[in-house]
Design a protein around this nucleic acid. Sequence first.
DNA 1: CGGGCATTTGATCTAAGTCAAATACTGTGG
DNA 2: CCACAGTATTTGACTTAGATCAAATGCCCG
Lengths: 228, 228
Amino acid sequence: MRSLTFCGDLGHDAMSAVAAIVSKVDLPAHALLAEEGERSAYVYNLTAGSAKLYKSLPDGRTQVLGFLLPGDFLGLGDDRLGGLAAESLTRVSVCRFRRRDFDELQDRNPVLGRRLLSLAQDEIARSREQMLLLGRKSARERLASFLLGLYDRLEARGEKTDPLPIPMTRTDIGDYLGLTIETVSRTLAVFKRDGIISLDGVHAVRLLDPERLRFLATGDEADRAAAC
Amino acid sequence: MRSLTFCGDLGHDAMSAVAAIVSKVDLPAHALLAEEGERSAYVYNLTAGSAKLYKSLPDGRTQVLGFLLPGDFLGLGDDRLGGLAAESLTRVSVCRFRRRDFDELQDRNPVLGRRLLSLAQDEIARSREQMLLLGRKSARERLASFLLGLYDRLEARGEKTDPLPIPMTRTDIGDYLGLTIETVSRTLAVFKRDGIISLDGVHAVRLLDPERLRFLATGDEADRAAAC
DNA sequence: CGGGCATTTGATCTAAGTCAAATACTGTGG
DNA sequence: CCACAGTATTTGACTTAGATCAAATGCCCG
């Protein structure tokens, strides 16, 4: 099964050790995998479906920190980490580990330890990119980056990307990009008008001009006027 | 010396192993410790002074990803990581490790490995907090968070915080908070007018009402009108 | 002591937010 | 399979926080 992609080349011993402590769980859409402030006793690895990770201010403003796709971990070393919640966007399947078991496994398997450090560093790199986006990019640049990011991640996992599936709502997208749903909607409308994308219903997009999108995403615009 | 705080309780062997591969370097203010796109052959641990970590868009917009204070690492596992630069803000002293030596040390010392994973997780937690700030907080909330963050970090290291030293320029602060220098300046002026802080020259602040600042930072405002 | 940068302050502009309706989906039960 | 209810999305009109442009100061540091 594809559930344990993360232990790919850990060797046979490690794989059976992993298999021994994992349990598979299915959950419906909109299920809370973790609540803000809670210290979860579990570590999850998503095997099907998608989820969002977020953090909120007391008055309800929320920031989506990332979307989890199949293969992604949730709760790694997070036990202590600052109030942050996770919710499934679709029906999901997860592999669940009791945290204690997982930590122990990690202590006995240096390769796994190194793998986890490497995952943490990937996450740091992605966070940095996102900080640049949130701090300095325009709405168009944010949406372009978002679409390409989703595309690239699915591509990298060998999932289909032609009608690019968008499992999250406009609200989730807005909360991820630091925008309102209206701005998300309007900006996508402009991309459509400009022939950069086409909407295939609300939860799928076709990237008609990825080239142009790349330019937009990095701010290399040279944004020639788009007539009406 | 305080240079090797990170290996505090690693044990004697590890400490001498560390000592064997480290070299101490002093650099002036505004020195580049790493350039965007470069793959540095070194890992640094800052022992005195401060520095900024940043990332830029092709047109020059830049996002400061964080400020390094004494004890902080630079370049951990970063070799590959997406173009990101570091520059000293003041005169700095650093402990420099050749990356290869450092990786090797890490492989032989599981405690060090765990320590690094933990540092990486701290960094992820801080990044998440910053994403919430950049995506959802107002200018006042950002500045309040910034001042308190600086205060807390110095406090935690036992540095003096009464006149809170602000080694970075307004430009750096703006680039860190996703604001312009004008907005930074104006917002600090408002804090001053409201008696929340007092400016002690341009590179030192006195937090007169940390309480209030905490409320501001978390958006718990209840922002009673401030008369003129 | 003065030149050059950093900061502050003021006036104005604008991208994105807010408020308010239409429309369009989605899932459900008949 | 269809209609309907309830939500999600789009679209439009208007507002605003923060950006931009433009001068004054202020502050190092040689």
